[in-house]
Amino acid sequence: MYKPLLLIIGLALLPGHPAWAATAPDAQALLRESDLARGGNLPGIAWTITITAHDQDGDSERSLDALADTQNSRVEFTAPARMRGERIIMQGHNMWFVRPGLQRPVPLSPRQRLLGGAATGDIAATRYATDYAAQIMGEEAVDGEDCVLLKLTAKTRNTTYDVIHYWVSEKRRLAVKAEFYTVSGKLFKSARFDYANSLEYAGHKTPFVSRMVITDAINPAQLTTLRYTGIAVRQPDPSAFELNQ
């Protein structure tokens, strides 16, 4: 009669049982905290991104100025010369591409690529806590740093990625590594993050993303690096995200 109870107690006391489970952080709260260092949960933010793509054809580089509020993002290319003035406007998951000569906004799907391995969704402020349901899968060290491994599952079908494995530093509460999967469970790219920038917000100085390196899963030689500079918390005028600007 007591056998099942003893079995349960015995299993719970096994050395292999994850001790962190008892004190496991709230997955969604941890995700929300980590979003802050990638531009999410701020009233507004402006930054400059330089994207460098390296593959078998050589290197190519693009620079853009980005502006975001809690719902919308806008990026404008400043280099190279042939892309100068091109814009991508994002209102929620709706995206449009505006080219100076073309004039008419062209709707884009989140899947459409920007350069190399960077999707259009990668350059927007990160709001994973809004778009994904987080679930703790365990803990793992990344480069010697203890991390909580989260599985992020898209809440809707129109997010840029279906499933993300996301390593968030236990101590710094920042995402340090990500793997991006298709619906069928196929890994198609991974990313690493550095936080050499800092941001002053609500009286606190917090680290902010300075570099995201994306590696293609099928062709590991294809590397795409996003560098973030000139970060400023700034509430943009709503008209900044109007299509006919």
């Binding site: 998951h93 995206m95 799907s109 079908r157 129109n158 990625y161």
Partner: peptide, 12 residues
Amino acid sequence: AQWTASEATLLY
């Protein structure tokens, strides 16, 4: 009207 039906599909 336009709707981002999935990460790859737009309907309008």
